[in-house]
C-alpha cells in the first residue's frame, strides 16, 4: 500500500532542487502540452477558415430553428397516412424488402470469397491476390450506394435490377472488410494442421477457416441485411425502384404531407428491421 501511494504521490506544489520554486502541477509536461495546444489551435483555425470559405451565414443559424418549426407545422404536419396504406405503396415496400434481401445475399456470397482473399493470413497469394481483393472491397466501400445506383441506372435503365446491383456493391464493401478482419483474427492452429496434411487453399478455407468464423459471419450477414435495407429505402431516389421512387416523386411535386407520411413509414420499417436484426443476432450468438 505504501508503495502504491508512493507511486501516485504527485505533489501539487513541488520544490525543485530545494530552491523553493513554486510550481503548479499539470497533467502534461512542457513539450507535450505545447504540442497539444498547437494541435487544438490548428484545428480551431481550420474550422474558422472553413466557415469563412464555405460562406456559412452564421446570422441565419438562429432564425433557422423557427423556420424549421414553421415548415414542419405548416407543410409537413398532418401526414397523409392514407397514401402509405395504398396498395401501390405497399407493393413498393415489398419490392424494397426483396431488393435489400437479394442485394445483401449476392453481396455476401461474393464477399465471403473476397474476404478470404483479402485476409492476409490465409489469402491464396498474399503478394498478388491480397492487394487486388483489398482494393476491390475498398473501391466498393468508398463509392456511396447512391452513386452505384446512378451508375447502374445509366447502364441498365430504370427498374429493380440496378437497385439490386447497387446494394450488392454496397454489401460487398460493407461486409468484405468485416469478413476479412474476422478471418485475420482466427487461430492459426487448425489452418497449419490442414496445411501440414497437404490440404490445398480451398481445403484450408473450407475445413480450417470457415468453421471458426461461421457464427461471426452469420452475425455480420444479418447486420449487413439491416444496413442494406436502410440504403434500399432511398436508392429508388435515382430511379432504382422501391420506396425511394415514391419519395422522389412526391418531393418533386411538393406533396409535403405525403412526404411526411413516407418518412414515417421509412422510420417505422427501419426500426422494425433493427429489432429483427438485433433479435436474430442474439439468437445466433446464443446458438453458437
Amino acid at each position: 500500500m505504501a508503495n502504491k501511494t508512493g507511486e501516485h504521490n504527485l505533489p501539487v506544489h513541488s520544490s525543485v532542487g530545494g530552491d523553493g520554486v513554486h510550481r503548479e502541477w499539470s497533467r502534461f509536461k512542457f513539450p507535450r502540452s505545447l504540442i497539444n495546444y498547437g494541435i487544438l489551435l490548428g484545428i480551431l483555425l481550420f474550422f474558422s477558415y472553413s466557415v469563412y470559405y464555405l460562406n456559412i451565414p452564421l446570422e441565419r443559424i438562429m432564425g433557422m430553428f423557427g423556420r424549421l418549426g414553421d415548415l414542419m407545422a405548416d407543410r409537413y404536419f398532418p401526414p397523409d397516412m392514407d397514401y402509405i396504406v395504398d396498395l401501390g405503396y405497399l407493393d413498393a415496400i415489398i419490392e424494397t424488402i426483396q431488393m435489400a434481401y437479394l442485394g445483401s445475399l449476392f453481396g455476401l456470397l461474393i464477399s465471403i470469397v473476397l474476404g478470404w482473399f483479402a485476409a492476409h493470413n490465409v489469402s491464396p497469394s498474399p503478394k498478388y491476390i491480397y492487394p487486388i481483393a483489398r482494393l476491390l472491397t475498398m473501391g466498393c466501400r468508398s463509392v456511396h450506394e447512391m452513386i452505384w445506383a446512378i451508375l447502374f441506372v445509366t447502364i441498365l435503365g430504370f427498374g429493380l435490377l440496378p437497385g439490386v446491383l447497387a446494394l450488392t456493391m454496397f454489401s460487398i464493401g460493407f461486409s468484405g472488410k468485416l469478413f476479412a478482419e474476422e478471418i485475420e483474427s482466427i487461430q492459426m492452429g487448425q489452418v497449419e494442421a490442414i496445411r501440414a496434411m497437404g490440404g490445398n487453399h480451398l481445403q484450408v478455407f473450407v475445413y480450417g477457416v470457415f468453421p471458426q468464423v461461421r457464427v461471426a459471419f452469420t452475425g455480420i450477414a444479418i447486420y449487413t441485411w439491416d444496413v442494406a435495407f436502410r440504403a434500399a429505402t432511398v436508392v429508388g431516389f435515382v430511379g432504382a425502384g422501391g420506396m425511394g421512387w415514391y419519395l422522389k416523386r412526391n418531393v418533386m411535386q411538393i406533396e409535403t404531407e405525403r412526404v411526411a407520411a413516407i418518412l414515417i413509414s421509412i422510420v417505422g420499417l427501419v426500426v422494425i428491421s433493427e429489432f429483427v436484426s438485433a433479435w436474430a443476432r442474439i439468437r445466433v450468438s446464443k446458438a453458437k
Binding site: L54, R60, R230, T233, I266, V267, V270
Partner: peptide, 25 residues
C-alpha cells in the same frame, strides 16, 4: 438517435435545403 440513424442523409439534406436554402450549410 433512431430518427437520426434511420433517415438517409439524402432525405435529411432535402429537409434542410428546404429550410435554409441551397448551399453548403
Amino acid at each position: 438517435m433512431t430518427l437520426s440513424r434511420s433517415i438517409h442523409e439524402i432525405v435529411w439534406a432535402l429537409i434542410f435545403v428546404s429550410a435554409v436554402g441551397l448551399g453548403a450549410f
